[in-house]
Design a binder for these strands. Structure first.
Length: 576
RNA sequence: GCGCCUGUAGCUCAGUGGAUAGAGCGUCGGACUUCGAAUCCGUGCGUCGGAGGUUCGACUCCUCCCAGGCGCGCCA
């Protein structure tokens, strides 16, 4: 126990010199050290204390942070919560800088107030480090691979893909801001039946356009865009096409060109959506390089495969699946699952610490079999995580239009970007928790008013920029260093300072839980508090010290909003 | 039948097992000779889908039920 105490104390002292750690973590460590000291000095008994939780009290009068540790350990050590709280409080109070007051409240909460001095210094830090505020650096970053969108290369992307794109990219941004490494990856299913079908559909349209007789496949792709592809091939690749022997070869060629056409279209749409993938991984390369066979052999070697009626079956029930899954058909062709297993095997071999996939809601049933395969191939626990991005309902004039490829009416991602713009689309897609079925209100998205949260947020940023322009016009030179505590001692400013200080822990929290909507919620609160500050406090005045303090605060808010928006992939305009 | 997601204010949604359940929109009423009124202030709004259970304490965890959505191929 004494060893533990020493270790915690040394952590504590390290933390005092480590500026990157957020306040919540610091407070956690202070409480932890206090507890250990109380134990080592005999004030509290040795015991297996519960994990120390640091939470935000509901009401500000209860402080900025609070811990229920006294409540939670009361039964364990047979002392009253208030008694324990009193002891811990005396140790927690013994620190300088961060904490201004420790309060013990009724049933046994220990409430902690951060000092205005600390918050002011944090504000000056923001103004100094600017775009780096909220970004952590780690000595040993975790390397993530995050695969998302991965839409079939058989046509344009729909609105569900757009949501996945916004979510995946934002989660990757969060991971990077949190000091880790995120590589964005897109998987192209350019193999198998659907490709064959795509080729035959396109080739049939080519024939039709040339006035020849065609037999359009019954279960083929009927969309209008297939005709566009046919037209494109006729215009650019007729010569090569004509050289080919028979219809089968020509269909295969058409499939190849159609995929090229579709993938480059998808890439363009995603780039316009500000999503840049590091890797575009083609399923066909797995088959060509023999990786599918290799993954199969690895599974076989570890006894995860058995043979039934000439088929090879993966024992996925061992990993919680409803039934075992066929991975190789009796004619020797691997199933889609087998290729997907090989794909994830490939990702594992590329040496990531963590694999994340974002899938649509229609694939949740697929999780157990694939994660089972990953477990079968990799000894590391929890290396693979699937996030399900729920469905999107487009609301037009109060009417819900369901987005599904199976229904005929699929709106494309391109239409959406053209219609409401990148900023608004991205924001709307991430502003709700990804578990919730999103109602995307098109009328609201197109409004340039306070009803639209994106504009509300951007307005706060533009408003601050405008103040700085005005300050420049008045010949005011910016000197944040002369800011005083006295000038910050008003409710509106204090609320802002506290929110600003929370930004790094909001990022870290959102990154670790893969919940980008926490950032949009936070930014809206910040913008709201800023508008309140603006309404109550005059920024520019004859009082130089007051003016400089206010400008520093405004600048810190502007920087934080901008950094937050950047993570969301939304612009922060200087004027609107 | 089985699995996943959802159910919180009129609407859209926040809400790590903690203190009196919150915000925006919408309603109604106020605030600009002054840094952007695309803003702010005030106002009302609840059997947290229902019933049990777990415990010091449940919107949160467990079980059952109800409602809505999605999925349950050797397709991809």
């Amino acid at each position: 126990m004494i060893q533990i105490t020493n270790r915690l104390l040394s952590n504590y002292y390290n933390l005092m010199h480590e500026a990157k750690v957020n306040i919540k973590d610091k407070i956690h460590d202070i409480i932890s050290v206090s507890l250990q000291r109380a134990i080592s000095e005999g004030k509290l008994p040795e015991a297996d204390y519960p994990v120390i939780k640091v939470e935000y009290p509901r009401e500000s009068k209860f402080g900025d942070y609070s811990t229920p540790i006294a409540l939670e350990s009361a039964k364990l050590i047979k002392r009253s919560p208030m008694e324990i709280g009193e002891i811990l409080k005396s140790y927690i109070s013994e620190n300088s800088g961060l904490i201004s007051e420790v309060d013990l409240a009724k049933p046994g909460f220990i409430n902690i107030f951060t000092s205005l001095e600390y918050l002011k210094n944090n504000m000056l830090e923001i103004v100094k480090i600017r775009e780096k505020y909220g970004r952590q650096q780690k000595d040993n970053p975790v390397k993530y691979n995050i695969e998302f969108v991965s839409a079939n290369p058989t046509g344009p992307m729909n609105v569900v893909s757009a949501r996945a794109a916004a979510l995946g990219d934002t989660i990757a941004n969060l991971i990077e801001a949190n000091g880790d490494i995120a590589e964005r990856e897109f998987y192209i299913n350019d193999f198998g039946n659907q490709v064959n079908l795509l080729g035959r559909s396109v080739y049939a349209r080519i024939k039709e356009l040339k006035g020849e007789q065609s037999d359009f496949p019954e279960d083929g792709y009927h969309g209008e865009y297939i005709k566009d592809i046919a037209q494109w091939i006729i215009k650019n690749h007729s010569e090569e096409l004509n050289k080919l022997e028979n219809d089968d070869v020509k269909s295969a060629y058409a499939a190849d060109k159609a995929i090229e056409y579709n993938v480059s279209g998808q890439k363009k749409d995603l780039e316009d959506f500000k999503v840049i993938f590091k890797t575009w991984f083609r399923e066909s390369t797995l088959h060509n390089r023999g990786e599918v066979v290799k993954a199969l052999e690895t599974l076989e070697k570890n006894n995860h495969i058995y043979i039934e009626d000439g088929k090879k079956v993966f024992r996925s029930t061992v990993f919680g699946d409803d039934k075992d899954r066929v991975v190789v058909r009796d004619d020797g062709r691997p199933t889609y699952l087998m290729a997907d297993i090989a794909y994830h095997f490939d990702k594992l071999e590329r040496g990531y610490d963590q694999l994340i996939d974002i899938w649509g809601p229609d694939h949740h049933g697929y999780i157990s079999r694939l994660s089972g395969a990953v477990q079968a191939l990799c000894s590391k626990e929890n290396i693979f995580r699937v996030l399900i991005s729920q469905q999107v309902n487009l609301i037009m004039e109060g009417e819900t239009v369901k987005m599904s490829k199976r229904l005929g009416n699929f709106s494309t991602m391109r239409e959406l970007i053209d219609e409401v713009g990148v900023d608004v689309s991205r924001f709307f897609f991430i502003m709700r928790s990804m578990d919730s079925h999103l109602d995307f209100d098109l009328a609201l998205a197109k409004k340039n008013s306070s009803e639209n949260p994106v504009f509300y947020l951007q307005y706060a940023h533009a408003r601050i920029c405008s103040i700085f322009k005005e300050a420049e016009k008045r010949g005011i030179k910016i000197k944040p260093e002369i800011s005083t505590l006295e000038n910050l001692n008003n409710n509106e400013a204090i609320v802002l300072l506290k929110l600003l200080a929370k930004f790094p822990e909001e990022i870290s929290d959102a990154a670790m839980t893969y919940e980008p909507h926490k950032i949009s919620t936070f930014l809206l609160r910040l913008a709201q508090s800023y508008h309140r500050f603006y309404a109550e406090q005059r920024v520019l005045s004859d009082d130089e010290s007051k003016t400089q303090t206010n400008l520093a605060l405004c600048d810190a808010v502007r920087i934080t909003i901008k950094n937050g928006l950047q993570i969301l992939g939304v612009t922060a305009p200087e004027s609107m």
